[in-house]
Structure formats: C-alpha cells, structure tokens
C-alpha cells in the first residue's frame, strides 16, 4: 500500500491560519489501511484541530468527508457540493489523491495533512516497512523476492556493504535487517548461493522517476 504519515500538528495549525471554513478529506483506501488518513483519523483530527486553533483564538468550522478512493475522479466528484462552502481543503490522502482534489477544485487552497512516505506493508500491528520503490526495473527474480533497491539503505545491487552488524542488521538502523544478509540466507536455503556471484551491471533508472515525470501509454487502451 501507499503509506502516509501525519504531519506535525504545529505545521498543520500554521497552515490553517486565517481560514474560517475547512473541508477535511480522508481516503478509505491505502491511508486508511496505514491509519493515517481514513475516516477514523479524519474524525480524530477534526476536533483536535478545532480545539488547538480555538486555544490560539481562531474559530474554525471543519466539515469532514472520507472518499472511497481519492485517486479516482468519480469519487473526488463527491466533494463538488460541499467544496463551495469552504475556503480551504485539507487532505489526508496520499499525494496522488491530494493532487486530484487540487486539480478538481482549483479555487481552493489544498493543504496536505500527511506526508506520503513509502510503498510498504503492515509488518505487525503499528509497524509498516518499505517494500518497493517503484524503480521501474524489477530485480526480485534474482534477489530471492527481497528488494535491494527499497530495502538496502544504499540500494546496493551486488551484495552487502561492510556495514552489516553482527546480528545481521543494517548499520544505518539497528532495527532494520540488512536485506543482503536476508538475501544470502534465502539463497543458501535454496542451495543457490552461487547465483549471487554474478556481477550485476549498473541499473537503468530511467523507467521510473529518473526518466522525468512518468507517462505510461497503452495504445491498446486508448480510444
């Protein structure tokens, strides 16, 4: 899922200065799954913002809505009726949803309520860990299903650097596995350690963010 995280409250409050009517929008898809911007978070944040601003002498009216999917125009359209009543929109959806909302309501300032940070899984309750970086050149078939691009701090392609801790964790974070340590473990378990001996040449990064803004054209689907 696309994972987002709350922005610090002081940053949210600073952004809301001067507004009287706010539409706070959540999304029931990824950001709900990662407990950052679903209906529950919208319903928690609205009174929090209201109280905090009130303490600062600012009275704000907050209307809340949670869209099924903020990244689909038909769902964003559900805000059309309510949008004229507010002077700003704060979204807890991912950056994709935020931009669709901003594009649909061009006369309303769009305030991000969360930071979109990663493509991750929920590894345990309250713990999400990155799994993919949408690099555009998938190597999972050669790395035993473990991604060195997203899960190695240096995106190394040819094995672990010298920074693997004694316990197999990464030097950058003692709670994060060295992914190459795990890749080697899986290769061993499969009896295929030698498959990692081949030198992997420099990657082509241009099928992703490094090729300029991504534009995917499927002629077969264009009418």
């Amino acid at each position: 899922m696309i994972v987002a995280e709350w922005k610090p409250l002081p940053e949210l409050l600073a952004g809301l200065k001067g507004y009287k009517n706010l539409l706070l929008v959540g999304c029931a898809t990824c950001v709900a799954e990662c407990a950052a911007g679903g209906e529950r978070e919208v319903n928690t944040l609205a009174p929090t913002l209201h109280m905090a601003l009130k303490n600062q002498g600012q009275d704000i009216n907050i209307i809340t809505r949670t869209l099924e999917r903020a990244c689909e125009p038909e769902f964003v359209e559900e805000l059309a009726e309510i949008a004229p009543q507010v002077d700003a929109i704060m979204s807890l959806s991912c950056g994709i949803g935020m931009q669709l909302i901003a594009e649909r309501f061009l006369d309303k300032p769009l305030l991000p309520g969360v930071n979109t940070t990663s493509l991750a899984i929920r590894e345990a309750p309250g713990l999400w860990t990155a799994r993919c970086r949408a690099c555009g050149d998938c190597v999972l078939g050669e790395t035993f299903g473990l991604c060195p691009v997203a899960r190695c701090a240096k995106s190394l392609m040819n094995g672990p650097c010298g920074g693997t801790r004694k316990n197999g964790r990464c030097e950058v974070d003692e709670n994060t596995d060295c992914i190459w340590y795990l890749i080697v473990e899986r290769a061993k378990a499969r009896g295929e350690l030698e498959s990692l001996n081949q030198v992997r040449q420099p990657k082509t990064w241009s099928n992703s963010a490094h090729g300029g803004p991504k534009r995917i054209v499927r002629e077969d689907l264009r009418s």
Binding site: N158, P160, T164, W180, L193, L196, V199
Partner: peptide, 23 residues
C-alpha cells in the same frame, strides 16, 4: 576496493571479493 572479510554474512565475503576482482 575495500574488503570486509569478517562482516556478516561471512560466507558471502569471499564471493564478494571475487566479484570485486571480476569487476
């Protein structure tokens, strides 16, 4: 190049040296 012969996973450190030589 640098070589960390005793870094975990130790069994991959000699193969990694071989990769550095091959490269």
């Amino acid at each position: 190049a640098a070589w960390t012969p005793l870094g975990p996973p130790v069994e991959f450190r000699v193969p990694r040296l071989a990769k550095k030589i091959a490269a």
